[in-house]
């Protein structure tokens, strides 16, 4: 199954829409509730990152019997120092975004801790690519 979603930078009113739709699909597929939770947390954080930091982005979601792959590709400022961005508490979010309760430097660490595989690459001035994989046949604790 393949789904594609467009995300517009700054459009907080629609942030979470793609995550919500993927959640519905996984529920219909009777995926383990704990796995759905992990997918939803990772996907929502990544979606919000595109809205908060990029100009626009695309999310490609592929679901098969083995796994769900969520690929985020954005046009944006990119991330100059990925290890720094991965540190809990580090954020470059604007004051407005922070006032909304985002930009606490928890997003990327939250994504990583909920993903089975997590790949991030970025080119400054061009954009960021993030791939999150969650395996669907692994029994959850």
């Amino acid at each position: 199954m393949h789904f594609e979603y467009k995300v517009q930078g700054g459009d907080f009113a629609r942030a979470g829409l793609a995550s919500s739709q993927v959640k519905k699909v996984l529920k219909q597929l009777n995926v383990d509730a704990k796995l759905i939770k992990r997918v939803v947390v990772a996907m929502y954080e990544a979606e919000v990152n595109v809205v908060a930091h990029a100009y626009q982005g695309t999310i490609n979601v592929d679901i098969d019997t083995e796994r769900i792959v969520m690929a985020f590709s954005d046009h944006g400022p990119g991330i100059p120092d990925i290890p720094l961005a991965m540190q809990r508490g580090y954020s470059t979010a604007s004051p407005v975004v922070r006032e909304m309760g985002f930009g606490a430097g928890m997003g990327l660490p939250n994504i990583q801790s909920n993903a089975d595989e997590f790949k991030i690459t970025s080119v400054v001035g061009k954009g960021t690519n993030l791939e999150i994989i969650v395996y669907l046949n692994v029994p959850q604790e």
Binding site: F12, A13, A15, G16, L17, S19, S20, K23, K37, V40, V41, Y44, V48, M100, G101, F102
Partner: peptide, 21 residues
């Protein structure tokens, strides 16, 4: 899931979080 969330945030994204969680 099932938590009552105490906050002062009033914008729509709180509902996205509440719904997803």
């Amino acid at each position: 899931a099932g938590a009552a969330w105490v906050t002062l945030q009033t914008h729509k994204n709180v509902m996205a979080v509440a719904s997803l969680k």
